[in-house]
């Protein structure tokens, strides 16, 4: 059974052309001077029950607008959308029973209350039966060390603990679909791993559909088989990551190390080769398309002009693929 169906979904906003000054702001109150902005442009996709989909795109691409339409907060301008078995914006309250939402940095829990009390209130709000509630709590106990968290007010928690709690709260009523908006933002490496493991386990156990928006490709690599990429409201890609990697199969990352200012070197290399070049504290990375030029030829050329001390060769990373798609699109 498919869990989300979207067909030719479009959302346009009317934005007021603002005037300045006191007179301008009074004008704005009565103004009909609008311009139309298309935030989501003719998107279609189907998500099956139990899938984890990475929903990616640069800031302002239209991700959160799509999520808002899927959660029923926003009405589409045109197109069809069915989540669970309802039309979201017509049945917002009914849909809310079937979904869970987590924002990485905005806790939805009661700030002053211990976590367990928040859970009990949610139990009432979502009308979770004692049986299901206890079963879920038992399952949580097998997954994370939840006891020390339960009696701690949310405001005294670290960001990681809070995110963990929010995820647990979002899955508490056993929703069919959970929307996770940048769940690992601002967390340290071990907490990120913990949260990815938890999401994976919940998805496996409950067959919950997960829509994950993130800028962290670690999340995508750990959780998603399928990714959807949008930019400027248009869908750029919708398929398996493996497929995408095959698509970029002829790409290799050549990493070289040399003495001196790496940024300056990278700048020089950029003039010499036809590929994208970037530098961090240790390595200069060159993304080579072997259909155009073999890696060894590139390396050979560079050896004449630079004193290379070390080198590595890697497959293209998800991060680089996404970057490439943002920059150039998929042909």
């Amino acid at each position: 059974m498919s869990s989300i169906q979207i067909k030719n979904l479009t959302k346009q906003f009317k934005v007021l052309n603002r005037h300045e000054g006191l007179k301008g702001s009074i004008q704005d109150l009565f103004s009909r001077d609008y311009k139309t902005v298309t935030a989501v442009d003719n998107i279609s996709m189907t998500v099956e029950q139990g899938e984890i989909v990475g929903y990616l795109g640069p800031n302002g691409a239209g991700k959160s607008t799509t999520i808002k339409m899927m959660t029923g907060v926003l009405e589409p301008t045109s197109g069809e959308i069915i989540v669970g078995d309802v039309v979201p914006y017509r049945n917002r309250t009914k849909l809310a029973q079937e979904i869970g939402v987590v924002f990485g940095q905005r806790s939805q829990l009661w700030w002053a209350l211990p976590l367990i009390e928040s859970f009990r209130i949610l139990k009432d709000i979502y009308r979770i039966s004692d049986e299901n509630y206890n079963a879920m709590m038992d399952f949580y106990r097998t997954q994370v060390d939840i006891e020390p968290l339960l009696h701690k007010p949310v405001r005294q928690m670290s960001l990681g603990q809070r995110t963990l709690s929010d995820i647990l709260a979002a899955f508490l009523h056993d929703p069919k679909i959970v929307f996770l908006d940048e769940p690992t933002i601002g967390l340290d490496v071990s907490m990120k791993a913990k949260i990815r493991t938890l999401i994976h386990a919940l998805n496996q156990e409950k067959n919950t559909t997960v829509i994950l928006t993130t800028h962290d490709m670690g999340d995508v690599d750990a959780l998603c088989r399928r990714i959807v990429i949008i930019d400027k409201g248009k869908m750029l890609y919708d398929n398996d990551i493996a497929h995408l990697k095959g698509f970029f199969g002829s790409y290799r990352t050549l990493k070289v190390r040399m003495d001196g200012d790496l940024q300056a070197h990278a700048e020089e290399i950029r003039k010499e080769v036809d590929f994208s070049v970037s530098a961090d504290e240790e390595w200069i990375s060159i993304l080579v398309d072997e259909e155009k030029e073999k890696v060894l030829d590139v390396l050979g050329r560079l050896q004449h002009t630079h004193n290379i001390r070390d080198m590595q060769l890697e497959e293209i990373s998800t991060e680089e693929i996404i970057k490439k798609i943002y920059e150039e699109g998929v042909e």
């Binding site: 959660t71 907060v73 809310a96 869970g100 924002f103 905005r106």
Partner: peptide, 21 residues
């Protein structure tokens, strides 16, 4: 701050949910 959106996803009346806090 944009935090208001977090009140919009519960299966109960938004006004009630917000004021009850």
């Amino acid at each position: 701050s944009g935090d208001f959106i977090k009140y919009c996803f519960r299966p109960i009346n938004l006004f009630f949910y917000y004021q009850s806090e």
